[in-house]
Design a protein around this nucleic acid. Structure first.
Length: 437
RNA sequence: GUGGUUGUAGCUCAGUUGGCAGAGCCCCGGAUUGUGGUUCCGGUGGUCGUGGGUUCGAGUCCCAUCAGCCACCCCA
């Protein structure tokens, strides 16, 4: 069998995968609700120029990883969004949110980067993220970190993640440091081998190089913290104090650099603890006070984060599968209409009912019920249809009872609850659907 | 984008110096015509990732290509 396959780095999420995805997404939704974030959905396609300048002309993302194409002859160059912070800020400005700040927004969606795929790195990948627009205060930064910490707790992965924070300073401080770094690496280029070339394009990255020689040179490189002025320091001190107060452990990591140019002051990253591999960043974010102006808007500070759903889901245990309350079997065609009627009646009462599709004798259908993990099998044949009754078989122990149409839901619930009452129409049983669980 | 490695049934994998493509699980049927799970018996399912080449003969050797994974690089 040769079917046309999915393109490289794009994967299908199948029914067996999605319970974990939904668990992560629901937990995130709950957290966002707790902090008052509103959901936003922006187009997957944007003008390429929106990203080019904001993310940094010389970042690898913009130079090599964006999916670009011309929108018709002589049309605009469009890009599949590689991230969502820039589009979110764009949408906020376009819809006038900057007149009613602060705004808390969260999003969920597919992003696209043309990288060489690996586990945890896909060309179409999924992010959930959040932004606070119009808030200068360090408490906004802290709030977002606490939100993510809460999410990890809720999902039971908090023990496996560690938090690193850094302070990038304002644009001026950052530029000054970058230049000093370049000079430092240039001066020591002879000792660094191939890495030396990267000093010009991305000197910050050299600080965490794994090459021993480069690491040696990096050890006495100029520190960004030496460039920071009082305002920058006060901001990050306040963020750190909030974290400490809240009991969120973190490490200050001067080598923590975000890949996108728009960040300033606080940046943070959650990564998998005890794993030196590089594909271990689960969630990253920071402050971007200059972004709004860069895309033509008014001054509007902001901070946000994005988490990689593909990577997060990878950490989650398989939740127990969802099994139906009832699996409806049909032994004779003449009972089909009654069976359908009964199924709807049970669903009205909140029971999940899977109907057998296809033929086969009762044994075969019960096998299906067993394979589905059904709690009960509903057996309907000509006998039951004629009397408008149903045979309810509890799959765990084979206990069997009969019920008339009207009382079937209550009897099914009683059977599931393990209640021994079985004689007929629930005279001693509980007919109140809501009180039976 | 660079280097490495893997690709055989729906899944997990065997397959010897080149000589008839296999196992377990899953699925289907029967033992059991209206009673599941366990067991027993039987069965379906393969262009051996794809395309070339070498050879009397290729799952096996060679080349190319696609895809997964690993390390770089980069990031969520």
């Amino acid at each position: 069998m040769t079917v046309i396959s999915a393109i490289r780095g794009a994967r299908d999420l199948l029914p067996g995968d999605l319970p974990r995805w939904r668990r992560a997404e629901r937990a995130a939704e709950r957290c966002f609700a707790l902090y008052g974030y509103g959901e936003i959905r922006t187009p997957v396609l944007e003008r390429a120029e929106l990203f080019a300048r904001q993310l940094g002309e010389h970042t690898e993302l913009v130079e090599k990883q964006m999916y670009l194409f011309a929108d018709g002859d002589g049309g605009d160059t469009l890009a599949l969004r590689p991230e969502a912070t820039v589009p979110t800020v764009r949408a906020a400005l376009q819809s006038g949110m900057h007149r009613n700040l602060p705004a808390r927004l969260w999003y969920r969606g597919a992003m696209f980067r043309r990288e060489r795929p690996q586990r945890g790195r896909y060309r179409q990948f999924w992010q959930i993220g959040a932004e606070i627009l119009g808030a200068q205060s360090p408490s906004a930064d802290a709030e977002q970190i606490l939100l993510t910490a809460r999410l990890w707790r809720e999902l039971g992965v908090d023990g496996r993640l560690r938090l690193a924070v850094n302070n990038l300073g304002d644009g001026e401080e950052r530029a000054r440091h970058r230049e000093k770094l370049r000079e430092h690496f240039r001066a020591n280029a002879a000792e660094m081998g191939e890495d030396a070339a990267r000093a010009e394009t991305n000197p910050l990255r050299l600080l965490e190089s794994r090459d021993a020689k480069t690491a040696a040179v990096a050890r006495d490189a100029p520190k960004l913290s030496d460039e920071l002025g009082d305002a920058s320091r006060k901001h990050s001190d306040a963020v750190c104090e909030s974290l400490t107060r809240a009991g969120v452990a973190f490490s200050q990591d001067e080598t923590l650099v975000r890949g996108l140019d728009y960040y300033n002051l606080t940046v943070f990253e959650w990564s998998l603890a005890g794993d030196d591999r590089r594909q271990n960043a689960l969630c990253g974010g920071g402050r971007y006070d200059g972004l709004s102006q860069q895309i033509g808007g008014p001054p509007m500070p902001g901070c946000g984060f994005a988490l990689g759903l593909d990577r997060l889901v990878d950490l989650l245990a398989e939740p127990p599968r969802e099994t139906p309350d009832c699996f409806l079997t049909l032994t004779e065609e003449c009972a089909r209409e009654f069976a359908g009627e009964l199924a709807e009646h049970c669903r009205d009462a909140g029971l999940t009912v899977w109907r057998h599709i296809g033929g086969g004798n009762l044994a075969r259908q019960l096998k299906k019920a067993d394979a589905a993990g059904a709690k009960t099998a509903l057996i309907i044949g000509s006998r039951e249809a004629a009397a408008r009754r149903v045979t309810i078989k509890r799959m765990s122990d084979g206990d069997q009872r009969e019920a008339e149409f009207a009382k079937a839901p209550a009897q099914i619930k009683a059977a599931i609850a393990g209640d021994g009452v079985r004689d007929g129409d629930g005279d001693g049983g509980n007919n109140n659907d809501d009180s039976v669980n």
